[in-house]
Design a protein around this nucleic acid. Sequence first.
DNA 1: ACTTGACTTTTACGGCTTTTTACCATGCTA
DNA 2: TAGCATGGTAAAAAGCCGTAAAAGTCAAGT
Lengths: 222, 222
Amino acid sequence: MKQTILIVEDEQRLANLHRDYLQQAGFATECLEDGLLVTARVRESLPALILLDLMLPGKDGLDICKEIRKFSAVPIIMVTARVEEIDRLLGLEFGADDYICKPFSPREVVARVKAVLRRSATLQDDSTFLHLDEERYLATLQGQVLDLSAVEFQLLSILAAKPGRILNRDQLMDRIYNDRRIVCDRTIDSHIKKLRRKISAVTPDIEVIHSVYGVGYKYEAP
Amino acid sequence: MKQTILIVEDEQRLANLHRDYLQQAGFATECLEDGLLVTARVRESLPALILLDLMLPGKDGLDICKEIRKFSAVPIIMVTARVEEIDRLLGLEFGADDYICKPFSPREVVARVKAVLRRSATLQDDSTFLHLDEERYLATLQGQVLDLSAVEFQLLSILAAKPGRILNRDQLMDRIYNDRRIVCDRTIDSHIKKLRRKISAVTPDIEVIHSVYGVGYKYEAP
DNA sequence: ACTTGACTTTTACGGCTTTTTACCATGCTA
DNA sequence: TAGCATGGTAAAAAGCCGTAAAAGTCAAGT
């Protein structure tokens, strides 16, 4: 079963070059010439990696990247025309996994693709299990996005920050409501329940939020 | 209290990149540009993890690693420029905890750092006969986990805090129920009994909770 | 301003676990 | 051996959790 690389590149000659080399290297390929349908295609064909040109007709590469990150953690390699771009991009947290600068040799592209795939393979079953982007309130579990409400996200953050450590309901409430609001502690249970439901929609067989009878809750990865 | 990551990297741009991402991820950072002062720094600032470039001016990364291992078990992640290096390194027993190959995405580095830290945290000692982790309500006896209820855990903690010292039932109740609840003192006996049963499931031949006729109970390791 | 819809909090209850109690058997000390 | 302390057991009581549904809150859009 071949892995599919999605090539998003408006310059036809370049796209073909990528395609040929990647196929030669044993990958399946798909091509798009503009940014309009990228997200739709990603959802459909679930590529193993996306090679994304930064300058595209129709839509900016950065926007596409952000959009994809809303629902998927698929590896993305950005292709840019200018070296100076890269430094700028590196500073930004917008979620690409690597950057290639034109002009480049097709061999280099293949090498990078392999490198990124290898990395993401080794990381998959490890720390990438749960990723919490505090700035964006974006939680991903095994590469899939968890659509959490603000309170749910916070709750998960607090628990996941100290895996294994048990927090009681008062501690959790104190951290979530720092305005000293008084809420019934069963409220926590309620949010926990919703969190668990959303999490189990992604990983039905793995429990990550455990209750400790008479004490509280804890987060613990498999 | 943040954990400190010590970055040892001669390429300034790369070091800054690491630093920014790790700080973003909630770590404190320190940087060194060559290998000469690494061991001294490790002794001083006791970092939680070291990110160590293999190729350094002044001293070889491997040597540094070995040197550190003589006095510390701090987690070390080696950074190397070439994939082939890794295979070679993996064969050698020199004590790094993980390897990262250039080029890499800063996100990956953060992920690896977290993964290694998590692993080393869970590997923490099972050398002591009885270990009580108050934070996670986790009691281990000779490396085996005792599945205790909240009260049982407290009871064992109180007794084990003063080995050999005899505590009567009132003292024990006072410490367990600081809300001045009045309970029958036979309740203690009941919990003691359950504790003993769970403990003897792990170490059938060793009695650690002793009753002192007419006085109370004490904990005493073999 | 009103409606609407999404999110949060409260409340109630069944089922389950732990804690407590009661009671009898056994063991210790004088 | 008498008298009290402790151990074992089981059943009652208390407390806790998961769940669902009702009630409240808030902000966006009309």
